[in-house]
């Protein structure tokens, strides 16, 4: 797709955040994903032009980071944590279950383009294991069944809200814009903290220090 003048303006505003323009590569790549769904050649070429870099320098950066995709992902990109702790706690079973349920392999996309699947590394939510991410929103304490229900709902167009996130699940593109640093105004939605995050505070309020 062609980038509009308005897209270019946004890109300029992203570049202006930084003392040196090259720093804007990463948010610009996120932004390209928010427009195109993945990092297209047109996107790489435009970023190179805007930042006065060789195209190879931009593509070198884009291939280093796993969140930048070189082909379309689903409207809902599902990541199942299979790092050790989540894997042991059920992540392996969830991932196997979803592959089977969706009929796709790792990095695959369902034929309807709705859901793509990827096994991911530790997502800093180990106290909520096993964790599933959708468009990089938290779905905590999943089971094989809950994960299947989640992707079914996605394919039906009504995914449930993330456990700790906005009130509804944004699309891949919408969230890519957030990662580009564009405020979608939804910061106030959702919980401030899940139960495990409050464990110590609750114990303290209950007067439970540890016995020496």
């Amino acid at each position: 797709m062609a980038f509009t003048d308005q897209n270019i303006e946004v890109m300029d505003s992203i570049i202006k955040r930084y003392p040196r323009s090259r720093s804007a590569i990463m948010p610009l790549l996120h932004y390209v994903q928010s427009l195109e769904g993945y990092v297209t050649n047109e996107g790489i070429e435009l970023i190179a032009k805007k930042l006065e870099l060789a195209t190879a320098e931009v593509s070198a950066v884009s291939t280093f980071y796993t969140q930048y995709k070189r082909k379309s992902v689903g409207e809902y990109h599902v990541g199942v944590c299979t790092n050790t702790l989540c894997a042991v706690m059920g992540g392996d079973a969830i991932f196997a279950g979803l592959k089977d349920h969706l009929g796709v392999e790792n990095d695959g996309v369902t034929a309807d383009g709705k859901v793509s699947l990827e096994h991911i590394e530790c997502n800093a939510a180990c106290d909520y294991a096993p964790v599933v991410m959708a468009n990089w929103e938290f779905y905590d304490n999943q089971t094989v069944q809950s994960a299947k229900d989640l992707v079914d709902a996605m394919r039906a167009g009504n995914p449930p809200a993330p456990t700790r996130g906005p009130n509804t699940l944004p699309t891949w593109k919408e969230n890519s814009a957030v990662l580009a640093g564009l405020n979608d105004g939804r910061a106030n939605e959702g919980t401030q903290a899940g139960e495990p995050s409050l464990l110590g505070l609750r114990l303290s309020k209950e007067g439970k220090g540890a016995k020496a």
């Binding site: 050649n41 195209t55 190879a56 593509s59 291939t63 280093f64």
Partner: peptide
């Protein structure tokens, strides 16, 4: 000053390469 070849990808998949159109 011709950075047309770069290291691409990461880890064991890291490889020298060009941008496909340059």
């Amino acid at each position: 000053a011709d950075p047309f070849i770069t290291l691409n990808e990461r880890g064991a998949l890291q490889q020298v390469g060009i941008y496909e159109k340059q």
